[in-house]
Amino acid sequence: MQPISVITGRIVALPVQDIDTDQIIPARYLKVTDKSGLAEGLFYAWRFDADGKPNPDFVLNRPEAQGATILVAGRNFGCGSSREHAPWALQGYGFKAVISPYFADIFRNNALKNGLLTVQVDEDAYQRLVRLFEEDPTAEVTIDLAAQTVTLPDGWQTCFPIDPFTKHCLLHGVDQLGFLLNEEAAIAAYEASHPARVVTTARS
């Protein structure tokens, strides 16, 4: 994974709470066996009308939202299913970070495993970002992972939490599967001292 340190970009605000993963990417797009074509399904039902034409009222279709790399969304973003296709679709569309008052647990895990930064800010900062997009959609916001800050063009700043391990992995491009594979000796020792109750899942 590519290391991440600072993300600077335009924001687009989708001020809706509880945006579920079925909205981010409908299940019918999940029949792929790779990660291709997912951006096409991103927010499909909101981006397109029943005939498949772009819905001009949806914020991502508005001219001022083009090229935005940071999504600002209401609380409990990514609730619902465990589909990692949701962060894949957001990244495929061009997003590098999502800012929200809080994230659903599985979505946050999936996003961070792929280098899509989930930035949890308080309600005041969230409202400020939504207003900023309404007032000046060309404004650029800077997310500094090392400092754990979000900075607005006027210099206003807020902090965000991130667990130290995830931060370390993102900053240095550490491969978490590689990290786990290095635990081989400890895993083998655990298995030796904890025999399985179900000896095998194969039918005898």
Binding site: E84, N110, L177, L180, E184, I187
Partner: peptide
């Protein structure tokens, strides 16, 4: 879990 973690468990039988 997500698909990245599915790979973690397939390969190591463990999760972080």
């Amino acid at each position: 879990i997500g698909t990245s973690e599915v790979a973690h468990v397939l390969a190591t039988q463990c999760l972080l």
